[in-house]
Write a protein that binds this DNA or RNA. Structure first.
Lengths: 342, 342
DNA sequence: ACTTTTTGCGCAATCGATTGCATCTTTTTG
DNA sequence: CAAAAAGATGCAATCGATTGCGCAAAAAGT
């Protein structure tokens, strides 16, 4: 009764006194098999509780219907939302998703990429670890022409498809928004400028100031890793300046929150005395008091797009010769922390 | 130069004029192969850029070193943290993780479970979808004695290992905490009582009141699905009572937050006029104003534990005859929303 | 009635790694 | 020094599904 070892197409074939080939073809709706035989086989398969062995099929077909994902950390809202988007599209298209986290370690990233390759995933979606400064491990895939889509943290050195946001516009829009709200001295808490994403945002920040004929004061630009500690340190440093700023564009919501907590503690009023805007729209940004203005990074949609692009590449005979870079729109979400005018 | 089709052990064997068996054994450090040959083979493998084909190996070994995970939604802090824990342990033990989300739909859950079975995962970790009221699809695994670990949303009908928190204690500790803080009429926003988890929490709530000789007023217990809307509706309803409560234990942080927002809007002071405590310690709970007291559900640790248990089961020859239920501790995190004393 | 085409299905190889058994060589033992 | 034991490697089957090719029977065409 309880079938310990699995039922194979050979078992079905034996029961029906036909060959395994026929069973295989019938179950795959091959037109070379008659309707009557097909029905008989399908009925038997159901009766015997047959479950196809995907592994065997994968081996023979040289295709796994599996997508590999590498992210620094699953447990982060942006990444889990992104993955959720990928998973949606992948599932609908009949793909499984293998997820691994690099914990922002280059060595682990390498291991993962090798492992995913050995598992013969049909395509790869990846965001680089913070440490990643060499890219040989991805050659495994490009050499075999297995498509890759990078997202979020990308570098120009990589010849592959990319899903990013327009970081320049992020910086520009955030800064201009603060200007429009009447802030006069706007600081910027920047991320590590080795990463293009942060360099571009800073460029946007500078451009917005220039366009509005406001001076660029290097003292108002602080470089950090954008943690909570960094945010608190930065605001202290800024307020200690002879001419302190009256607003700040922070590289992420986390550091914006840290600034806010500190400012509230020392009795400054937000947004009256100080304006704040962050980036990425973390879940908490909406619910803290005052709520934090930010630019929303469409994580879920980026995941959808990445999966669509990847699957399209996997399934098209002739690969796109050029590598696409898809820029996703960001949305300014104005909340209390920057709403001085209204 | 750029090897389009993969290199196999046969390619290595041919180059070295030996048999594929020897190559296989050498790469697996089989003692039957001489040290000299091993080294020669390993060097050649490296030189040729050999990457083992896990699929072929899996097929032959009847083992995939893969764990399947089914959750309602990846993009939720509890689940993504849990998965992160699983992934950590799994990776360290040489397992891959295939993740799927049911979107709280029974049909999708069924599909996923079948798909994971067909992919011959070595074990399964699952949290049931909201709709799940039949469990036949999991029989696939139990029939073949493939281990399963359920977590979070579990039901007694399932004969499998389980990782849960002590929901009774959750309700008890939360309620007693409010009592100790001097609140006199404590409401409870309960979840759907078809789920044991909510039933148990309510039982804890009642027990705490009884132990402290406080009356149980059914008017103060509201049943809902614990969304933000539900939280707002509930607090309105509670405040409209002839004898409104002065505190509430909410089934999750989300609904507690909703209550808080409403209470602040109508000018009530928290925790002075009204005390609040939630459950699960969402990331926002710490940073909202006032911060929300809660009971922390150790998501990451639950993931670690689930993976450890599952892998132990996978790798042990003789399976545990009895099904373990592991109860994880919850931690009361006292924050501003309930700190009336001191 | 005979050839040609179509239809339905089976044989056997294949995907790449693994492994029980056999074979051959070398070393040890009585 | 022969026999037994140990050491090193190869042969061929196996895991389960797929598919090119071939064969036979039925249908269609002449």
């Amino acid at each position: 009764m309880d079938q310990k070892s699995s039922i194979t197409i050979h078992d079905i074939a034996r029961e029906l006194n036909i060959s395994a080939s026929t069973v295989s073809r019938a179950l795959n709706d091959n037109p070379r098999i008659s309707k009557a035989t097909k029905e008989k086989i399908k009925a038997k398969a159901l009766e015997m509780g047959y479950q196809p062995n995907t592994i065997a099929s994968n081996l023979r077909n040289q295709k796994t219907n599996t997508i590999g994902i590498v992210v620094p950390l699953i447990n982060r809202h942006f990444f889990s939302s992104f993955i959720s988007g990928v998973e949606d599209v992948a599932f609908a298209a009949g793909y499984n998703v293998i997820i691994s986290q690099s914990n922002d370690l280059l060595e682990k990233e390498k291991q993962i990429v090798h492992s995913l390759f050995s598992n013969r995933v049909d395509g790869l979606i990846a965001s680089l670890s913070m440490q990643t400064d060499e890219f040989d491990h991805f050659q495994l895939f490009s050499k075999k022409e297995i498509p890759i889509v990078f997202f979020d943290r990308v570098v120009p050195e990589l010849e592959a498809h990319k899903i990013v946001v327009d970081d320049f516009m992020v910086g520009f829009k955030a800064t201009e928004h603060l200007i429009q709200q009447g802030y006069k001295r706007i600081a910027h808490l920047a991320g590590p400028t080795v990463l293009h994403t942060y360099r571009d945002r800073m460029a946007g920040y500078r451009a917005a100031l220039e366009k509005n004929n406001m001076p660029i004061d290097e003292e108002l630009i602080i470089y950090s890793r954008l943690t909570r500690i960094d945010g608190r340190d930065a605001i202290q440093q800024l307020l200690a300046l002879p001419q302190p700023p009256d607003a700040a564009f922070c590289g992420n919501d986390t550091s914006a929150l840290a600034m806010m907590v500190y400012l509230k503690k020392i009795g400054m009023k937000i947004p009256q005395d100080f304006g704040l805007i962050g980036f990425s729209d973390e879940p908490f940004s909406e619910v803290v008091t005052p709520s934090i203005s930010t630019l929303k990074q469409p994580a879920f949609e980026m995941g959808l797009k990445a999966a669509e692009l990847l699957i399209q590449e996997i399934e098209s005979k002739n690969r796109l010769s050029k590598h696409l870079t898809i820029t996703m729109p960001t949305e300014l979400i104005q909340r209390e922390s920057s709403s001085r005018i209204r």
